[in-house]
Amino acid sequence: MGRPVLDVRELTKVYGEGDTEIRALDGVSLQVEPGEYVAVMGSSGSGKSTLMNILGCLDVPTTGTYLLDGVDVGSLSDAQLALARNRLIGFVFQAFNLIPRTSAVANVELPLAYAGMKAAERRRRAMFSLDLVGLADRAEHEPNQLSGGQQQRVAVARALVTEPALLLADEPTGNLDSHATDEVLAVLDELNAVGRTIVLITHEDEVGARAGRLIRLFDGRVTSDSRQEPSGRHAVVGV
């Protein structure tokens, strides 16, 4: 399938020193090919959030290498890292992390603005992206006027708008009720169906079951890595 989108080798992350030392990641290696839909599962404290933050270039590993689309992230300068976050990665947070008191469409436009795109083109793409998650009619609403599910869909639209190589979602349904969870997962299924690479972390089995590949983490190590038949595809066809 060509060059892996994501290639991490022997990643470790250590918090604290001496007696209080905690190894959040203890030698994680994995590759993700373009178009894959990967779910990382594990109990709380298994290091999955730490892994996600490193994959999203939000944090740096203690040791190990991380190649994002073939580029060694560890060797990048601050400005280049900003560029990588902007162009290569779309990140969806558990807590949504929309900019408060700013309209949905302005939130979605933000990554494009940092990419230096003209306002008119930006607005067109943001609206297209919002339409993709079914929220084109809520474009001028501010985050506090939207439900949790809607906020998370805006966040997904924001992550998508730059057409990144990789969509990372850190417990995207963690703060949502079952109905909103379905809304967001349906959007992710659809995106994967059109070829987007998605890595999400979750501790809910039904969320993990939607992915085509399931990786389990325990105490900072990969304990299992298996391919499966995703459960969500049929649901998408029905939408």
């Binding site: 900003a82 560029l83 947070f93 990554p111």
Partner: peptide, 15 residues
């Protein structure tokens, strides 16, 4: 927090 969000979206420090 807002700065954190902006950085995660790829905002350079200078901006």
């Amino acid at each position: 927090r807002e700065i954190g969000i902006r950085k995660a979206l790829g905002a350079p420090r200078r901006v």
